[in-house]
Simulated assay, not measured.
Amino acid sequence: MEKLLVTTTENIPGKNYEVIGEVFGLTTQSKNVFKNIGAGLKNVIGGEIKAYTELLTESRDTAVDRLRDNATAMGADAVVMMRYDSDSISQDMETVAAYGTAVKFVD
């Protein structure tokens, strides 16, 4: 099955569509204690904290997958104007929301 199109633009070239409504994908994730210890040590010496980069990447991907599921359940053909929002709940937990507008293609 082909993934539902998700774009950050307002228009999809060559497509006319009608708006169905808002769609969201949410997730809150954390890393395990061993990766948190490694991240703490990296914080002392500096540099990229790869465990947290992975955390944000996984969170973003999960949020977009859930956004696609939400849009598919609404009968959408695509999502336009997709955006992200994120927030730290604690030092090792991150919440990511992907949101946009579900649309249905018309002739």
Rank of each mutant, 00 (worst) to 15 (best):
M1P: 15
M1L: 10
K3N: 12
L4P: 00
L4M: 08
L5W: 03
L5T: 03
V6S: 00
T8N: 11
T8S: 13
T9S: 15
P13V: 02
K15W: 08
K15Q: 14
K15I: 03
V19R: 13
I20H: 05
G21L: 12
V23D: 01
F24W: 12
F24E: 14
G25V: 06
G25Q: 07
T27Y: 07
T28C: 05
Q29R: 15
K31H: 04
F34Y: 05
F34Q: 04
K35S: 14
N36Y: 06
G38C: 02
G38K: 05
A39V: 06
A39G: 10
G40S: 05
G40P: 00
G40C: 05
L41P: 01
K42T: 13
V44K: 12
V44S: 01
I45C: 00
G47S: 05
G47K: 03
E48L: 00
E48Y: 00
I49F: 00
I49R: 11
I49K: 07
I49V: 13
K50I: 05
A51K: 02
A51C: 09
Y52Q: 08
L55P: 07
L55S: 09
L56S: 15
E58T: 11
S59K: 06
S59C: 11
R60N: 02
D61T: 10
D61L: 14
D61W: 00
T62E: 14
T62V: 15
T62D: 11
T62K: 12
V64T: 09
D65W: 01
R66V: 07
R66E: 11
R66F: 12
L67V: 06
L67K: 12
R68V: 02
R68W: 03
N70L: 08
N70W: 00
N70G: 10
T72D: 05
A73Y: 09
A73G: 00
M74Q: 12
M74G: 02
M74R: 10
G75N: 09
A76V: 11
A76E: 11
V79W: 07
V79R: 08
M81K: 14
M82R: 08
R83N: 07
Y84Q: 10
D85M: 14
D85T: 14
D87G: 13
S88I: 03
S88G: 03
I89T: 12
I89L: 15
Q91E: 14
Q91A: 15
Q91S: 13
D92N: 14
D92H: 15
M93L: 10
E94Q: 11
E94C: 13
T95Y: 08
V96I: 15
A98K: 11
A98L: 12
A98W: 05
Y99R: 15
Y99A: 13
G100K: 07
A102L: 08
K104D: 06
K104S: 03
V106C: 08
D107H: 01
